[in-house]
Design a protein around this nucleic acid. Structure first.
Ligand SMILES: [Mn+2]
Ligand SMILES: [Mn+2]
Ligand SMILES: [Zn+2]
Ligand SMILES: [Zn+2]
Lengths: 144, 144
DNA sequence: AATGCAAATGCGAATGATTTGCAAAAAGAA
DNA sequence: TTCTTTTTGCAAATCATTCGCATTTGCATT
């Protein structure tokens, strides 16, 4: 259960290595993604982007998110079944607790849960490729 | 980790009690939902419905799903970020393992995981309202 | 620095899932 | 049966996302 704000990974280098061109829109979008703590959706990323370069299009944001997702550079979430929201993949794995009143997203990590998931899948004859765990909760009144 | 095909709950009675009219389309959709083992999406429910009464519209399916969800009679899932899929809420809580190759949905239940989730939320000062746990996996080659 | 070409962009139109407005039909109380 | 309200079917609207295509850009090569 810990946060990890480590050193930024060099996505540009990774992109180049994969034979992908590093363009102005991509650079800007990557900057946005690596320098935020939250989980913005495409529209929010778009708005932050046009603040830096107002010629960037929403299509390019979507295309770039798909590209980065395929490269494993970002993760896509769909809290509440709403529009896709993103975060950079770098850093240790974590899951999310969503405050149903405020919409706040709290990150947490539990080895125990990860282990249990593996066990369950194995008991069913499966290997986990990925998973999604979202807790939707409300601030508790009780003393902690 | 067990299935539970118990006695069907009387949704019609519940609907009436809530002051909701019990119409032909609703009766048909409820029948479909209570008599299936899978997790159909709106379109699939629609197709099964018009087989019984070809005057039912897709809008009504969607409206009915929203109604039943609000009443807590069904659960809505969005596996893979695809279209909403539904199942009757009746029966004990369970989570899902999705076979990434076949799309098969396997249900499972683990008290341990449920407990752990509670603990985690509590440690963060929250009470869980609901949660979503989806494991995406592939049949393992290893001996079980 | 100029050239060439594939890759990426911006734009707007298309898509797919879901919702909505509205007149007509059906439910249920009286 | 009549009356009032809810629900329906249909078509059009919305929302998030993708796509087609002419134009621009990245970048490897002269
Ligand atoms: Mn996160
Ligand atoms: Mn299920
Ligand atoms: Zn996890
Ligand atoms: Zn659960």
């Amino acid at each position: 259960m810990k946060h990890a704000l480590n050193q930024k990974p060099d996505y540009e280098k990774e992109l180049r290595k994969a034979g992908v061109r590093i363009t102005r829109p991509r650079r800007i979008i990557l900057d946005i993604l690596t320098s935020t703590e939250d989980h913005p959706d495409a529209m929010k990323i778009f708005h932050r982007a046009i603040e830096i370069d107002d010629s960037i299009s929403l299509s390019t944001v979507y295309r770039t998110m798909n590209l980065l997702e395929e490269m494993g550079a970002i993760h896509r979430h769909a809290f509440n079944g709403g529009p896709s929201r993103f975060e950079q993949a770098h850093g240790e794995h974590h899951d999310h607790l969503i405050d149903v009143d405020t919409g706040d997203v709290i990150e947490f990590q539990s080895d125990k849960i990860e282990k249990l998931q593996e066990e369950i899948a194995r008991a069913l004859g499966y290997d986990i490729i990925h998973h999604r765990l979202e807790l939707y909760g409300r601030k508790s009144k009780r003393p902690e």
